[in-house]
Design a binder for these strands. Structure first.
Lengths: 337, 337
DNA sequence: AACCGGTATCGAAGCGCTTCGACAGCCTAT
DNA sequence: ATAGGCTGTCGAAGCGCTTCGATACCGGTT
């Protein structure tokens, strides 16, 4: 391994000069800078990460805690993770991948060891057990998701309340008076995952305001589970003419089932999905949907964290405004017989 | 931050003694060990990662390079990534997430800076540009996937050649003589991704041996693309009675299309998928499939890398034997009219 | 001519840990 | 009784970097 000292010797300057060339923290004459840069190139020098971290107490690493469960909204998670990794690099940071497995201990470990300079948490529950630790350790952090109490925290998320409201509005405008929600898996609600509950709140509030009947049913992904859920919904509310789906893995099965039952989309049944655009445009019917802006969430989270690490930036809740794109899966409610 | 020295003082021993308690590299009397451990607990000590890395030239970090593209076989990637992160932790390693974006430079950066002790590469192309660097830098590494030349490399992968062969065998046994393959997106073949080409080789070889006609068509995921591909296939080979699908995102669209066209699965058309079990069991027809053992691949990759880092283990190619599970999507070929 | 404020560079200390050699004490074998 | 071998502990060096004075030199003031 080539060291700073070797570069310094090769360039005929002191080690500190090389360091200042690298960091730009003191002015260096153009001549010296060029000589040093040349030596760096010729020797193929790379600063040693450990030494740097020790001396500067900065690791230039961001920890990203992703949920362990691989069964839930996976593509969204992946997209966020990749967006985080990519934009972290543009700010000079690397990303350490932590799975939820360790739980709060991971926070302790990372904060205690100086492994990472800050962390980004995904899959935040309303009353997440990692939060007290985060506040206590003063670990710079950004949440993707919104817990119940946000005091002293920075959060980035889609405004799921508004998302729910928007879905109902769109269907109500088209004359639908009986709407059903095919939600996330029961486990998601049991864990009090913020986004699921807030979506539901938004749906219900607006439904009440617009005098629309709303039925909510959690639903595991997969064909069979969707079949059961749909049957129950239609049994309980035969007049249902609008569906809101918040579970990527329920989308295709649902469309298949409706087709099979001879219910045309959107003539007999309108469907609004909450999912990434990719899912909405690749499905068998182009879905009217509210996009989950995974990439932007990842990017924003990194930007806020970096701002904090630079001493800029403050605690703040960033809610991205939902956008509903009308595609081919929604239309006027069928006239009542 | 609590330091080693403070722990040592608190326990009334020297710093090196604490270090040896932690690492177990020298024998320590039970009494001393307990005193030290107690101090560690009471003070809430966590070793500083940077200092440790500097002194020991080991970071206890494994770099994982995942593909940047989020359009391809995402759930598999995610599952592997999580398996890697999880099993790395059981060996005392953390995982650094690199996206393909930086390409070969990432290898240089990581190797040069001592950021990670070794790396795991995913999405390996047959003639991957990262490989020469890997060999040159003697960076301990494991590939998930199989390049053209494996000399001096450790690789873990599903035996895709055998997988292809197995699919053909199964269909041939059931009397199918005309088989079509709905493959990965064209881009995947253009990049010469190992697994796609090897699957195809396996399919073709066995088809030739068993005197089965085989038609291969790459296919982007999504409903429309599958519709086009399927139409072309049936146009070109109307007698096709067996399909092999190697593209997760083509599975549901395909089933929907077949249903729509009045082709019953498996009575009129048998379908074999190459996909994770979860996809095969959650689809509208339970699919006969060869599982992609994502978790095992991740776990094995970590184990081999850790073995290398410990000085055990050697270059080796590990091909996992494919297993075909018969479910409801394959059956005897329809008798020829 | 003495002085000042910049600018460019150097030297040295120190970040918190690992690890090597030294050594004190003790037990066993002769 | 003495040499030899263990076991358990300590001290010090050093990993490669950052960063804080200190210093030397420059041109421009008074």
């Amino acid at each position: 391994m080539v060291t700073l000292a070797e570069v310094a010797q090769h360039a005929g300057v002191s080690a500190s000069t090389v360091s200042y060339v690298l960091s730009g923290k003191r002015s260096i004459s153009a001549a010296t800078r060029q000589r040093v840069e040349r030596s760096i190139r010729e020797l193929g020098y790379h600063p040693n990460a450990g030494a740097r971290a020790l001396a500067s107490s900065r690791s230039n690493i961001i920890a990203l805690m992703i949920p362990l469960r691989t069964d839930l909204y996976v593509p969204v998670m992946m997209e966020i993770a990749i967006a985080v990794a990519t934009s972290a690099r543009t700010h000079g940071y690397d990303v350490l991948l932590l799975t939820g497995e360790e739980g709060p201990d991971a926070v302790r470990r990372v904060a205690g060891s100086g492994l990472a300079d800050g962390m980004i948490l995904m899959d935040v529950e309303l009353d997440d057990e990692r939060l007290p630790l985060l506040r206590a350790t003063h670990q710079p952090s950004v949440l993707i998701g919104l817990p119940a109490r946000t005091a002293g925290l920075t959060c980035v998320d889609l405004d799921f309340w508004a998302t729910g409201a928007l879905c109902v509005e769109h269907l109500a405008e088209q004359g639908h008076r009986d709407i059903a929600v095919i939600g996330e898996a029961p486990a998601v609600y049991e864990r009090h995952t913020g986004f699921a509950e807030r979506t539901l709140d938004g749906l219900r509030s607006r439904a009440r305001e617009l005098d629309v009947r709303l039925l909510h049913r959690p639903c595991q992904g997969g064909y069979d589970a969707v079949a059961v859920t749909l049957a129950r919904i239609l049994d309980e509310r035969p007049g249902t003419s609008g569906l809101v789906v918040q579970n990527e893995s329920a989308v295709e099965p649902l469309l298949a089932l409706l087709r099979q039952q001879g219910r045309a989309v959107p003539e007999d049944m309108s469907v609004v999905a909450i999912c990434p655009d990719q899912v909405a445009t690749q499905s068998s019917v182009r879905l009217t949907s509210v996009a989950v802006p995974a990439q932007e969430m990842g990017r924003r989270a990194v930007e806020h964290l970096v701002a904090k690490l630079d001493g800029r930036g403050s605690d703040e809740v960033v809610l991205l405004a939902p956008e509903l794109t009308v595609r081919a899966s929604t239309g006027p409610a069928p006239s009542r017989a």
